[in-house]
Structure formats: structure tokens, C-alpha cells
Design a protein around this nucleic acid. Structure first.
Lengths: 125, 125, 125, 125
DNA sequence: GTGGTCTAGACCACA
DNA sequence: GTGGTCTAGACCACG
């Protein structure tokens, strides 16, 4: 997995957000075991404490469950996952749309640009 | 003007980005005088140094021109403004689309959600 | 280290320039750890913020690399260091020579004066 | 005349220094009339007050003399001019040499670079 | 009045 | 411990 980490923000929320996206996308299926802190930290090349922090936040939100004996598993609460997915999406959409419109783009322009971003992205600087 | 400041990131880049959006949107027309540091700081309710940091970054990018004794003006470089607008938009689109697709949304779903966000946004939390 | 600070110009660019000269001269070898902001500020007897400003500029130019929690190191980019050294030297030479010739000195006179500056400098004020 | 004005320092000392170089170089001969503040300010595209400040400094150093009736003239004190020329030159040489040696250049390298700067300057970045 | 710099002192996140 | 940010308050040069 590729981790995109931006140095201008604390690392743990960025990791948390990426893991949330992965969970709601089904990359880690409901009820399935979750990788260990050690493995995740090594994979993302961050300190274990940092990864621990991200996971404990996921736990607070109920997306992952810690079993003392058997490590962590993804929640079985399908509803929670759906709600989370919808909530994140809505937040992203609202702020994205707001910022684009602040720059003077109309909805149709935005959609047109998005549709074209497959090819355009490759080109321009 | 309404300033949306999120305490999860440093203030000055957020201010810088908002001002960039305003400039490329034409809110501050090319060549026109730019508000003073003191006024902007007061308006945004931040310290003058914080605002100055944001503005000095805008100057580094060439979007505003500083005249030490007579204040700042917006650049007259129409091309720079257009390029900047396109660049910001593209970056936003790419990362937005990437994150949405990471969560398992297809392009058409995203567009559908965006079109519906007028009404939906009002409803849910 | 001796810091020569001239109050006719802002402090932070002067510090930046001195540090640049030290880096390109190899005083801080490539890849080696760089002193902390606090230590440098104390040594130069300036405020930490002032030193931080100088260092952040050095980082913008790529000469030092910042690791948020473990301090800074000198770049490993040998080419950048060489280029920077050459660039600074050339700028200094051009402006020095220009100003001397503006005062009516010929190249040979300048060189003669430079060769003699070991002894002459000591004498006159 | 071409005025090189650097925005990072106050303007008047820069102008003063350029005028000093011109005087000691004989561009304004001893005893000859000096241009008016108005003309100089217009030529250098600076505020008249700024030019006034520069000239009053030159007057303090005795390089120009103000006669209430007939405007300003260059000093007739040949010795002062020679001393000034030597002093400026020495200061420039010392600081230039110091900074170059700080970067690890030897005297012979510096001289070699200076001799080559006719052609090199044109080329490089 | 403008922008720019500097200081002192505080707090934060990360490891 | 590290770097980074923010505030409050002061001073400066310029016009």
C-alpha cells in the first residue's frame, strides 16, 4: 500500500484518514483481522507510537475492535461503516465544492474538469 | 469576509489559500490595491505577524506586489493568475477524486452526489 | 563561531548568508546533523524566531533538511552545494568588480590591492 | 545613468553609495555643479525626499557643498576625495575577500575567477 | 499611514 | 528533547 504523508500536518490523523477510507471501501472486510501495529508502522515507515495513535482513534470511533487475546478486527457493524462512508464523502464533497466555487468555477465546469481529469492530469504541470 | 479557520492545521497556510482563491476568483481585481496587513489581521482575528506570514508567501508566488511604503497591489500578470487558478483547481480535483475513489465511489456516483449536495448538505450532520 | 551582524540590514538574511557560506565551505559536512535552532540562536544572541526564519530559508533552498522531531541535517546533494557555492561566488565577484570599476579601479589595480590587503588592512582605518 | 536599487535595504543609503562612487571616480569633477535634487530624483525614479536624504548625507561627509544661491557643487578638497576613494575600496576589498575565503576560496582562485568573470558572467545562470 | 523586523514568552505535536 | 506556530507588543524606515 502506498501511504501519502504530508509533512505539514501531524502524521497520525493522515494515517487515520487513510485507514478509514480503506475500511469503508471494504479493503479490510467487516469482521476480518486487522494488521498489527508493528506491520502497519513498518509498511508506512512511521514510528510505532504514531501508528498506535491512529489506531486508537479508529477504535474510539468503533471502526476497529481490540480483543485482548486475538488482536484487532474490523467492526461487524455494517451500519456504522455505511454511515461513516457517507459522512466522510459528504464532508469532502461540501468542502471541495465550496472551494471550487470560491474560485469561480460553476458546477458544470467542475464536473467537466473532473471527467477530463483522467487525461489532463497526466499532461499539465 | 468570512474566514474559515480550522485548528487542525497552521493558520497562515489556510489564510494564504483563502486569499489565493479570492485573488484567482477576481475578488481582488488585477492591479487593484490589496487590504493592509493590519486590516486583514483584524478582520480575520489573527495576529498581524500571522497575517504577514501569509501575505509574504503570496508575494513569493508573485500574486501580490509589495510597495514598502504604500501597501500592496494585486499582480497585473493575467497569465500568472490564470495558471494559478488552473493549478489549484487541478490539484484539488485530483486529490478529491483520488480520495473518493479510494472509498469506492465511481465517477458517476461522485457527480451524482455533487449535484445533489445542494439539498443534502442542508439535511444531514 | 563568530557572528558578524550589521544593523544596516535585517538580521535574518545576514545569518542565512553566513550559514550558507559555512555549508558550502564544508564547515557543516554533507549529511551531518545541523545545530538546533535553540543552540544557534543562543550562540548568535538572537531570538529563536529570528534564527528560525533564517533556517527556514535555508531549507527552502534545499541546503538543509528538516526532520520535525529529530532536528536538521545538511543536504546530501553534492551538486546543489557546488552549484550554490559557485552561484554565490559569481554574484559576489560581479558586484564587487562592478563597484570597484565604477570607482575607476582597473582590474590590475584591484588585484594588486587585494594581494596587498593582508598588510594594508591592518594599518589605515 | 542606471540606478541599481535593492528593495531589501532602505533606498537612500544605496543612492548615497552610488553617488559617492561616481564622485570619487570623477564622474562629477571637483568643483563642478551637482545636479538638482529634482533631476536626480526623477532620473532615479525615487521620491524627492529620499534623494534629499542621500544628498544631505553626502554633504555631511563634505563631498558636496551647498551654496544657498547657486545650488550644490562637488567639493574642491582633492585629498578628501582620494581618502574617501581609498576607504571605500579598502572596506569593499576586506569584506569581499573575507567572504570569499569563508567559502573556501584561496586568493589565487579568487583572482583567477575575477579575471575570468568577463566571459563567465555572460554564460552561467 | 504603510510594510518589515525583532523579542519574549507561550503552547503544540512528535518520538 | 526537537521544530513549528502564535500572540502581544515594540521599534524602524519610508513618504
Amino acid at each position: 500500500m502506498e501511504w501519502k504523508i504530508d509533512d505539514s500536518r501531524p502524521i497520525w490523523p493522515q494515517i487515520k484518514e487513510q485507514l478509514m477510507r480503506d475500511i469503508v471501501a471494504g479493503k479490510y472486510p467487516m469482521g476480518s483481522p486487522f494488521p498489527t501495529v508493528r506491520d502497519l508502522a513498518e509498511d508506512a515507515k512511521v514510528n510505532r507510537n504514531t501508528m498506535q495513535r491512529a489506531l486508537s482513534e479508529l477504535e474510539n470511533e468503533g471502526l476497529v475492535i481490540t480483543n485482548r487475546t486475538s488482536g484487532r478486527t474490523v467492526t461487524m457493524d455494517e451500519n456504522l461503516i455505511k454511515l461513516t462512508r457517507g459522512k466522510i464523502a459528504k464532508e469532502k464533497i461540501v468542502s471541495f465544492r465550496q472551494e471550487m466555487e470560491d474560485m469561480g468555477f460553476t458546477m458544470e465546469e467542475i464536473i467537466s474538469l473532473m471527467r477530463g481529469s483522467d487525461s489532463d492530469v497526466e499532461k499539465g504541470e
